[in-house]
Amino acid sequence: MGLEEPGFSAYIPLAYPSPTRFLEVLEALVPCTDFFEIGLPSQKPKYDGPTIRKAHIGALEALGEAEAGGRLLSFLETAARILRNSSVPYVLMTYYSDHRQRVTSLLEAAGNLGAGCVLFPDLLFDHYDHMQDYIEGSREAGMKPCFFASSRFPHRLLAELSRRDPLFIYMGLQPTTGVELPIGVARNLALARKLVGEAYLLAGFAVKRPQDAQGLVRAGASGVVVGTALLERLEKEGPSEMRELACRLRKAVKEASMA
């Protein structure tokens, strides 16, 4: 699986706001999305800000919390079928801490369902010694690995990750999703680009406006992912307004490379 470059990705927690509406949202976003990042809802989404945390809780409640684990995967099958039919690629995002005991089976399931990779944002921070297992497990499941890096990250490791032939390296521009702090994100991204060479560099966290997304591509991002801004638009104004924002974001990303 290859990713469109420059590319725009929409992040949505699986089964949010409800299983039925999630599928509607997915279909609404298909025309304006190069690839989806589907989040598996977590009880402890530790790198997520208030909006996405609330969405995770909402999704778990909608699925029936006690049996959410099993229902999530079966529901993912339905979502994956829709995505396969629409030919929009997708990747899964979930926390390694949630799946420590069953990482291999999760990777196998994701591979079977056509995911491009499984992104574990906490893998390198809290489970560093499992990196090699993750890479091998991903490849055995027919996927490439993908990695999450932050704005304080070892340079040598960033360069090394780029040599592991990842689907992408995700640069978390802000400390948490949806929360914008006064950080020189373009400076950090430009440096990350130098360190990762030609690797696909996906930028995300608190990207809200089309001009911001465009600026990130100009600073070196191969793609931009947006979650909180879309979920807030969905909550406040509905699916068509959310799609309208996604279309504008995608257009800005595409135009960045033409400027």
Binding site: F125, Y128, P154, T176
Partner: peptide, 8 residues
């Protein structure tokens, strides 16, 4: 190895 970030 990477520095674990501040979290909520």
């Amino acid at each position: 190895r990477p520095l674990p970030p501040l979290v909520d």
